[in-house]
């Protein structure tokens, strides 16, 4: 009984630690007037409306969503053929591309960001919006690469052999067997890249920070030049989007498997 109690207490403390800052931010975001107080004084959802109504915040939102939609798509477009090739072929030297795909995510983000800054400055494209899209695609290619590699590894190779015995060539196998089977992994990879791109600050800042504001850049700028509860409402909005996307992955896929549990059985 004490063991159960201690376990519950431990889980509660960790949960509180993780939730406390978000609870306060959520509270602050519904303040009636423009002030930073908690518990909130009055109740208003106006600051959520601001995200869409205020032209600056709305523009930042549009930038962020455009960036995330496009860069996640390119990240998947890079990861899919690469993961397929690594699964289909024996070519040990091709693993170098896998390392290249994993490196941007493992290295401290400042380094990747600075690499992009020097590169775009050198080729004279610094500040163009598309440079941020490409930079994010490279920065987050790791996520679809990992989920897709997991997806390919989960395909029983005898399925492909069975398709071949029934007359399917490589292209038909890819279209009728492989792609349908890895679709959930492809979607999760895209979703991971999308959510992280939406939240990313330093790479976006170092590529287009001087010319364009994404939501995280806008929050940071606002943080330095004075407080508005819209920052809080945007933060809550971000948490909600992330929880929604990951919740959907968990509902329609197997998130435990994606995060490294061997199989979907157990418990």
């Amino acid at each position: 009984m004490t063991a159960t109690f201690l376990r519950r207490l431990y889980f509660t403390i960790v949960a509180l630690f993780l939730a406390a800052p978000l609870i306060v931010v959520a509270g602050v975001s519904v303040n009636a007037r423009q002030e930073l107080t908690f518990p909130p004084k009055g109740f208003s959802l106006a600051w959520y409306g601001q995200i869409f109504a205020d032209p600056e915040w709305r523009l930042a939102l549009i930038h962020s969503v455009t960036l995330a939609v496009c860069s996640a798509a390119i990240a998947v477009a890079i990861a899919l053929p690469l993961a397929w090739f690594l699964w289909r072929r024996i070519a040990p030297w091709a693993n170098i591309f896998q390392v290249l795909g994993l490196a941007p995510f493992i290295l401290p983000p400042v380094i990747t960001a600075l690499g992009f800054l020097t590169f775009w400055a050198t080729v004279g494209l610094f500040g163009q919006f598309f440079t941020a899209i490409i930079s994010h695609a490279i920065f987050f290619v790791t996520l679809p690469l990992v989920t897709l590699s997991l997806g390919f590894a989960s395909i029983d190779r005898s399925l492909v052999e069975a398709a071949a015995t029934m007359g399917a060539d490589d292209r038909t196998v890819l279209k009728t067997v492989v792609l349908p089977l890895i679709l959930p992994y492809l979607v999760s990879g895209y979703a991971f890249a999308f959510v992280l791109s939406l939240n990313e600050y330093i790479v976006a800042y170092m590529t287009i920070g001087f010319t364009t504001e994404t939501l995280p850049i806008k929050i940071f700028n606002a943080l330095r030049y004075g407080y508005t509860p819209t920052m809080a409402s945007v933060s809550v909005f971000f948490v909600a989007v992330a929880a929604l996307v990951f919740g959907a992955i968990a509902k329609f896929g197997d998130i435990r498997r994606l995060l490294g549990a061997m199989s979907s059985e157990g418990n």
């Binding site: 978000l22 939240n199 995280p216 929050i219 943080l223 992330a242 929880a243 990951f246 998130i255």
Partner: peptide, 17 residues
């Protein structure tokens, strides 16, 4: 895991704020 991923994906700006 969903909760942890949501917190992990949060921007450093938002965590700082």
């Amino acid at each position: 895991l969903v909760g942890l991923l949501s917190v992990l994906s949060l921007s450093e700006v938002i965590i700082g704020f």
